[in-house]
Design a protein around this nucleic acid. Structure first.
Lengths: 196, 196
DNA sequence: TAATTATATTTGCAGTGTTAATAATTTTAG
DNA sequence: CTAAAATTATTAACACTGCAAATATAATTA
């Protein structure tokens, strides 16, 4: 009965791949049962044989994008000198990722996790998304005593809420109005939270 | 031709009132053209004689709620001693308002301003929402030299993004899981940003 | 009172998510 | 290798959504 499992997993993945493509390309609002099934090469009702509802399917994509984001960030901050400088570069790259793919921002922070497939694992992944992406940077700062260990958790929280708040305002409320202003604001906030 | 205007304004207000009621009660997801028109006592197509689309109608409610929020906050923080203490109480009351009315949080921070009625005035109002609610508190702190004047704008930004970020995580991502944990986190963040 | 204008409603269309009944396929049993 | 059983995919249908054009009603003006 192992074949059944890997076959099911394969078909599930066709739907997930289709969803990911739509999310990255046209955005969250373009993800619909019919649209996804079309791209996956199945009838729309077939989707319900593999996922409880469209919401479950959408949130299944979170872990893939988180992984992709991690690689994206690592590629952008690897050249920087380790320490608070690279930490800031990682945060900046994290922000860059979501500005580049607004559909993924919508998925991570705006989409409502309703219906049968609440997928609390995905919600947890999102809550720890920035921490996860910056994990190595934080660890280095602790090892090298660049930041007092007892401050780390508080700093992580500050960064998490501040970054998410700025992204929310910029992506969803057109504030600030220009991308340059936005980046300036991000750097200012980062410098306020992460001294040196 | 003044009668025409006040009549039109009256009917517009019937739709706005209905929308506000639904937003506060059942939430943003319950606001639909049919639902609003039903409650307003009109056919749903009539709505389009007074508003470009449902999105415009929704964002028209922002100023009313902002006003209501201001009164809500003032009532909760008026007893506190002026200064940073009352400032923190105001921020806490602001958060309390949106936790009490999730539909209004959805409107302020989650709803997509798409379609014909982008209503950039409403977006600006939202961006300055917390600053507006805390205006008196900030002014008092400046007058009494409780906070260096050159820090004010940066502190406002920090508070704005941090508070919105925390609200977003708590309301939309179930993080933290309990209300007590959430309040503890809010207080911690506030104390970090506003010293004394 | 009749014609004109303004307002409201009905009808219709193209979407959405989801489910039940049906069709096609694959697997199992004889 | 064929017949029955189980699995999987599809069509049809329902109740929604936002929105627009055509139609009906009401109010205003001539």
């Amino acid at each position: 009965m192992k074949n059944k499992e890997i076959q099911e997993k394969r078909i599930k993945n066709y739907f997930v791949e289709a969803t990911r493509e739509i999310l990255k390309g046209e955005g969250l609002q373009a993800v619909s049962v019919r649209n996804v099934a079309d791209r996956a090469g199945y009838s729309y009702a077939t989707l319900y044989n593999y996922f409880k509802d469209i919401n479950e399917l959408i949130f299944v994509c979170v872990s893939d994008f988180q992984e992709e984001c991690k690689i994206f960030v690592a590629g952008k901050s690897s050249k920087k000198t380790k320490g608070t400088e690279r930490l800031k570069a990682s945060v900046l790259a994290y922000i860059h990722y979501f500005v580049e793919y607004p559909g993924i921002f919508d998925l991570f922070y705006l989409a409502k996790p309703t219906g049968a497939g609440i997928n609390s694992a995905a919600l947890h992944l999102i809550a720890k998304s920035l921490d996860d992406v910056c994990e190595e940077d934080w660890n280095y700062c602790i090892r090298e005593n660049l930041i007092p260990a007892e401050n780390i958790e508080n700093l992580k929280s500050q960064l998490r809420f501040s970054v998410t708040g700025m992204l929310l305002f910029y992506m969803n409320r057109r504030y600030p109005e220009t991308h340059d202003e936005f980046l300036l604001q991000v750097k200012k906030q980062m410098d306020t939270i992460i001294k040196n």
